[in-house]
Write a protein that binds this DNA or RNA. Structure first.
Lengths: 141, 141
DNA sequence: AATCAAATTTGTACTAAGTACAATTTTAAT
DNA sequence: ATTAAAATTGTACTTAGTACAAATTTGATT
């Protein structure tokens, strides 16, 4: 019997190695939009032979195959999300925290403008100040 | 009499130094979503005392003040855009080229979910394959 | 089971985008 | 002219991510 993790990998054409399973499992258990580094640091104690390169390579592979999504809202690091359903992200410019936001559906582009293009990913990012940090926002004059 | 560049800077509370004007002018004359490095390389011959740090600092300042927008669709570099009107970006995963896409208006979030948050920026990114590179796209099986 | 090629992982060295910071220069008010 | 504040500069540094060759694992075939 296959775990949901293995199923997810295979559904996206990815051979389920021990490392890939561990990384996918981590993401499916932690919807915290972690960085590659965070993932490595959390898995390393459980898997002392794990290499950082493998984490980077695997995340790139998973994202390429559409098994996870790569979030570039944080200018410094890429973040990863196993939730591949339609949703947006909000990032607080003061404290850096990242929130999921529901959207009915991500907007599509006027067909005539994008005719002949193939769209594989849509990302909707909001930036600003969260409830806690709102007082830190520069005056909007 | 003030140039449109100086006006734009002042409208966003930025004191118009020679360097800031040069950078803002470059962006308003080149809607090519350049990186900091590209801007530096283009301005340096005309302004041999210009420092890369100034370019980075100025772009950050301009973006903070909302005079330009910072685009993080390219995972490797930040890109900058003097067009601050409502539009989306498309990036080809094969050739890397970046296109502007018109949108009627950027989607807003369900108020109850974002209540108490202050949104200052909205970014809508599409990724995929452009007309030229479409044949290079992996089978969507 | 032994062999062997292909795929995957590992570790080290490297690249390059961006930042910290102190020193210098410029600005502009008195 | 003097002087304090603001802006710029250059160097050194940090760090996310990649290149690549060596080692390991996988899995098919005899």
């Amino acid at each position: 019997m296959k775990t949901p993790i293995v199923e997810r990998l295979q559904a996206h054409g990815i051979k389920p190695s021990v490392q890939r399973i561990a990384i996918m499992e981590y993401l499916m258990g932690n919807y915290t939009h972690p960085t590659a580094d965070t993932i490595f640091n959390n898995l390393y104690p459980l898997m002392p032979t794990l290499s950082k390169t493998t984490v980077y390579n695997t995340l790139k592979l998973l994202a390429q195959q559409g098994a996870i999504s790569e979030i570039s809202i944080d200018e410094k690091n890429l973040r990863y999300d196993a939730d591949i359903s339609s949703h947006a992200h909000f990032r607080c410019k003061h404290c850096g925290s990242l929130f999921d936001l529901p959207v009915k559906r991500l907007p599509s582009v006027a067909t005539e403008k994008i005719d002949g293009f193939v769209i594989t990913d849509t990302q909707l990012y909001y930036k600003g100040y969260c409830k806690k940090c709102k007082t830190k926002a520069p005056a909007l004059c």
